[in-house]
């Protein structure tokens, strides 16, 4: 495996890379360019970078206006202040008119670390996926983050993309890796249980798969990078095959990937779905790696949930 890299770094690099190819790309930030990494675009294309100051609601409206004239605005701030503070601006000014705005939220989840609960957004996926027509993506590593940005440029419509602060492993460095919006990636094929994960939890899901194998349990691992539109076909075929699902996400278990998977399967192929994530509570301050252990967002946590799912078959 390559060196660890945060998905926000890959996001900033991708903006700088693709910004050179498409002059319609404009980037907006709300006084967080150093942190969200949009500064990488700003340094290369200062004439297409616009700081909006600490005024996120106006920023998303400006993006809506820009997009009506053919620009492709990428707007960044922390997930808390995008999905949280500006939920209604995103719903009414971007989602309702279905405008080509790319909301790129960084510092999602508890891996924000020391800043603590006010800045650790564990609810963004839940909020964003209730908006009709909004594509919601949570990439699992730097390679997928870059691929998601490339796909976003080629997709005409509103998107919410979630990036993390913490440097994480590169797991998609295989030659045949292919990213497609709304198409899950099968990372491992098994028969006893299916782990459906996204974001930084995909790496943990792969480790969990190996731990389960040592106990004689064969697990599928699905990288569900797109929460909306959800790849229901892949879920159905996995549910039929293994008959037990575990979801894993760095997000509240209320409303996120786990809820999306349970909602889909209960109507078409009801099997046990056990949700692994932040257990409906706020985060706290601490080094990211310690918080990940504290909240059980680990392979070990997934293994425990997998066994529960299997026992309910």
């Amino acid at each position: 495996m390559a060196d660890k890299i945060a998905t926000r770094e890959a996001y900033g690099d991708a903006l700088a890379e693709f910004g050179a190819l498409n002059e319609n790309i404009v980037v907006l930030d709300a006084d967080l360019a150093e942190a969200t990494k949009t500064i990488k675009f700003k340094k290369k294309f200062p004439e297409r970078f616009f700081d909006c100051g600490i005024a996120e609601n106006n920023m998303f409206g400006v993006c809506a206006g820009l997009s009506t004239t053919g620009k492709i605005p990428f707007a960044s701030t922390f997930a808390m202040f995008a999905a949280g503070r500006s939920y209604e601006q995103i719903r009414n000014s971007i989602g309702y008119p279905h405008l080509n705005v790319k909301i790129c939220a960084t510092h999602a989840g508890i891996s924000v670390g020391e800043d603590g609960a006010t800045h650790q957004c564990n609810e963004d996926i839940a909020l964003m996926r209730t908006i009709p027509g909004l594509v919601v993506i949570n990439p699992s590593d730097a390679i997928e983050a870059r691929a998601a940005i490339e796909a976003a440029i080629n997709y005409n419509g509103p998107m919410y993309m979630r990036f993390g602060r913490l440097a994480i492993s590169v797991i998609n460095d295989n030659d045949d890796y292919k990213f497609e919006i709304g198409k899950a990636i099968k990372m491992a094929d098994g028969n006893d249980v299916t782990i459906v994960a996204n974001g930084m939890m995909v790496e943990q899901a792969l480790i969990a798969k190996d731990m389960l194998k040592e106990e004689g349990i064969s697990a599928s691992v699905i990288n569900m990078h797109t929460v909306k539109p959800l790849d229901v076909d892949t879920l159905i075929s996995e549910a039929k095959k293994t008959g037990a699902i575990v979801t894993s996400e760095e997000h509240n278990i209320v409303g996120g990937l786990g809820s999306a998977v349970a909602e889909a399967l209960c109507e078409v192929c009801p099997v046990p779905v056990i949700k692994h994530g932040v257990n409906d509570e706020f985060g706290r301050s601490g080094p990211a790696k310690e918080l990940i252990e504290y909240y059980g967002l680990t392979a070990k946590g997934i293994v425990e949930k997998a066994k529960i799912a299997i026992s309910l078959k």
């Binding site: 106006n58 997009s67 009506t68 000014s93």
Partner: peptide, 15 residues
């Protein structure tokens, strides 16, 4: 909200 969108349209013309 509409005013912000108008700002975006005006900014786009400047760009």
């Amino acid at each position: 909200q509409g005013f912000s969108c108008a700002c975006g349209m005006a900014l786009s013309a400047k760009i």
